[in-house]
Measured scan of single mutants.
Amino acid sequence: ERLAYIADHLGFSWTELARELDFTEEQIHQIRIENPNSLQDQSHALLKYWLERDGKHATDTNLVECLTKINRMDIVHLME
């Protein structure tokens, strides 16, 4: 799945992406607590919560915009 692929590449950027996707610091902290050992797991959790929260509004376009804002064009190019 594309989101899994994106999550695998996010690394430390997942928190920046979370902020761009309008997650609160508290929500970010919660994701860290729930997935303490792996940045990859934290990234996967973030994208899963985003899909659950935004439903049909959780679009590739939205994700590309946010990834561009945090200067992760490498991931944007991987999505093309």
Results as ranks from 00 to 15, higher is better:
Q30D: 04
D60T: 12
V64L: 12
G11A: 09
I75M: 15
A4L: 09
A58I: 03
Q42R: 06
Y49A: 13
Q27N: 15
V76C: 11
T24H: 08
L47K: 02
D41L: 10
E34F: 03
M73W: 13
Y49L: 13
W14R: 00
W14E: 00
A58S: 04
Q40F: 02
S13P: 03
I33T: 11
L51P: 03
H9R: 11
H29I: 08
D22I: 05
K56E: 15
K69E: 09
E25G: 08
N35C: 09
R32C: 08
Y49I: 12
S13E: 07
K69P: 01
A4K: 11
D60F: 15
S43P: 02
T15L: 14
L47E: 01
D74A: 01
L51T: 13
I31E: 01
I70L: 09
E20F: 07
E65T: 14
L67V: 05
D54G: 12
L3F: 15
W50C: 09
I28F: 01
N62F: 04
L3H: 10
V64G: 06
Q42S: 15
D22W: 04
D60G: 06
K56A: 11
I33V: 10
K69G: 09
I75A: 13
I33C: 12
Y49H: 07
T24S: 11
E25N: 15
L51I: 12
I70S: 02
I75N: 02
D41N: 11
G11F: 10
Q40P: 10
R72V: 01
K69V: 11
E26T: 11
W50I: 10
L63T: 02
E52R: 10
E16G: 09
F12L: 08
G55T: 11
T59E: 08
N35Y: 08
D60P: 08
L63F: 05
K48I: 05
R32N: 04
G11T: 05
Q27V: 10
N62S: 13
E65L: 08
I70G: 01
V76A: 07
H57Y: 10
W50H: 06
D41S: 12
L21S: 02
L46W: 15
R19N: 13
T24P: 05
L67W: 00
N37V: 13
T61S: 08
R19A: 08
P36A: 04
L17M: 06
I28Q: 04
L39K: 07
L63M: 13
D22T: 10
I75L: 06
Q40E: 14
D60E: 10
D41I: 12
L67I: 04
D41Y: 04
A18L: 00
H44T: 03
A4M: 12
R53H: 07
Q27D: 03
C66V: 14
N35A: 08
S43T: 02
L67E: 01
F12C: 10
L21A: 07
T59D: 06
E34C: 02
W50K: 14
E25R: 07
L10G: 01
V64T: 13
D8Q: 15
T24I: 05
A7C: 15
G55L: 11
P36Q: 06
E16V: 06
Q40S: 08
N71V: 03
I6A: 00
R53S: 12
L51S: 06
Q27T: 15
Q27W: 11
K69C: 07
K69F: 06
D8T: 15
Q40R: 08
T68S: 05
D54K: 15
H44W: 05
I33R: 13
G55V: 10
E52S: 09
S38G: 10
Q40T: 11
F23S: 01
L21R: 01
L51N: 06
A18R: 00
E20I: 02
S43W: 01
Y49E: 04
I70H: 02
K56N: 08
I6S: 01
Q42P: 01
N71D: 09
A7E: 03
N62G: 15
K56L: 10
H57E: 15
T59M: 06
R19I: 14
E20H: 02
E25Q: 12
A7Q: 07
N37H: 11
L17I: 11
Q30F: 11
A4E: 12
L39W: 10
E65R: 12
D8Y: 02
A4C: 08
E65K: 07
